[in-house]
């Protein structure tokens, strides 16, 4: 382990003419972490990854892999990376074992060692018996496994997986999860992009939400869920005639609604708000029949964060950013995450 982060990105920009694909992305991925990059289609995830490996030339900013600039020290930077891309970009002229041997050779691994590693990598992903087959003849799942083998053959310190489980069946998805978790346990830093929120929630230590080329948030999945709103639904014995005055002054509470016997409180950190709610209802002599807390899912947080812009454009203001800015100023977020992972590209602290 070194004291350098696996990835250190500052104000990374990429423009294609009038189109801005990356709009000042800043983030840090600690060495040894399992880092997720979430975002809707067109968010800039693949552009971001391709910038790291030399398939896209950045328009501005800096990107370092284990301290090596991706352009000035490209050889050192690329030597540290194994990439399993989204597309099936595999040499069709050769059987897959030879493709792996070539890949190893491009990284300076001698032929004998390359052959041994190719066999090991194919065994590791479970397609060794297909070693003399060309890529086009593999099934969809095998193709995904092969891309992972190709990324692993150079024994990279940073493994980048771009939608590795897209279009694969449940069994294979679980196999791949197990494999990459094991790799991460053995010290590899993993950068994962995915559409599957469950996958990020299950695998990642931290996730960044990317939208329209900007980082909306960087946090652990649990922290992100805490930022979403939970619902506390209370069933009362006797319906009150009017909405009782509850939880006033608690800035975690966003709404209180009454519908007959049912009182619904929408709040952040619902699990912490619920006891206060019960105490206040008890003091006001309301008898509680039932209480249920529905926690926000990471998927809901993701959807909320990635649709805010259009909603806010219509309403004329970015309430999320204002709230984040207020949190940043007051430190009321309660987030004790290291500063480097809280800095968002749009200047807000999330």
């Amino acid at each position: 382990m070194t004291d350098r982060p696996a990835l250190h990105i500052e104000d990374l920009r990429k423009e294609y003419g009038d189109v801005t694909a990356l709009d000042g992305v800043s983030l840090t991925v600690p060495e040894g972490s399992f880092f997720g990059l979430l975002g809707p289609n067109g968010a800039g995830k693949t552009t971001f990854i391709n910038t790291l490996v030399g398939l896209v030339r950045k328009s501005g900013g800096t990107a370092r892999i284990f301290g090596h600039d991706v352009e000035d020290d490209y050889q050192e930077a690329r030597n540290a990376v194994g990439l399993a891309p989204q597309e099936f970009n595999v040499d069709r002229f050769f059987p897959i074992r030879e493709v792996l041997e070539h890949k190893a050779g491009y990284h300076g691994i001698p032929a004998d060692e390359a052959t041994r590693r190719a066999d090991d990598a194919l065994k590791q992903v479970g397609i060794y018996d297909k070693r003399d087959t060309r890529f086009d003849w593999l099934s969809g799942g095998m193709k995904r496994r092969f891309l992972l083998a190709r990324a692993l053959i150079t024994d990279p310190d940073l493994l980048i997986l771009d939608e590795p489980t897209a279009g694969v069946d449940v069994q294979l998805r679980h196999d791949l999860w197990e494999l990459v978790t094991d790799l991460n346990d053995r010290g590899k830093t993993i950068l994962l992009t995915t559409h599957y929120i469950e996958e990020a929630e299950r695998l990642c230590d931290e996730v960044a939400i990317l939208d329209s080329g900007r980082v909306r948030a960087v946090a652990t999945p649990a922290e992100l869920k805490d930022r979403g709103t939970d619902r506390i639904v209370v069933e009362l014995r006797s319906p009150p005639a009017t909405l009782p005055d509850l939880l006033t002054g608690d800035d975690r509470v966003e709404a209180v609604d009454l519908d007959g016997h049912q009182l619904t409180v929408t709040a952040r950190e619902g699990g912490l708000v619920a006891p206060d709610l019960v105490r206040e209802l008890d003091r006001a002599d309301f008898e509680i029949v039932d209480l249920e807390i529905t926690r926000t899912s990471l998927e809901e947080v993701f959807v909320e964060m990635t649709r805010t812009d259009s909603d806010d454009d219509e309403s004329g203001g970015d309430t999320r950013t204002q709230r984040d800015a207020a949190d940043a100023a007051s430190g009321s977020d309660g987030d004790d995450s290291p500063p480097d992972r809280q800095v968002a590209s749009d200047g807000g602290v999330l």
Partner: peptide, 17 residues
């Protein structure tokens, strides 16, 4: 052909000079 099928990426993303 490598560009068309994108497999030249394996060379491009390699540390080869």
């Amino acid at each position: 052909h490598g560009r068309w099928n994108e497999y030249i990426d394996a060379v491009t993303v390699s540390p080869m000079s």
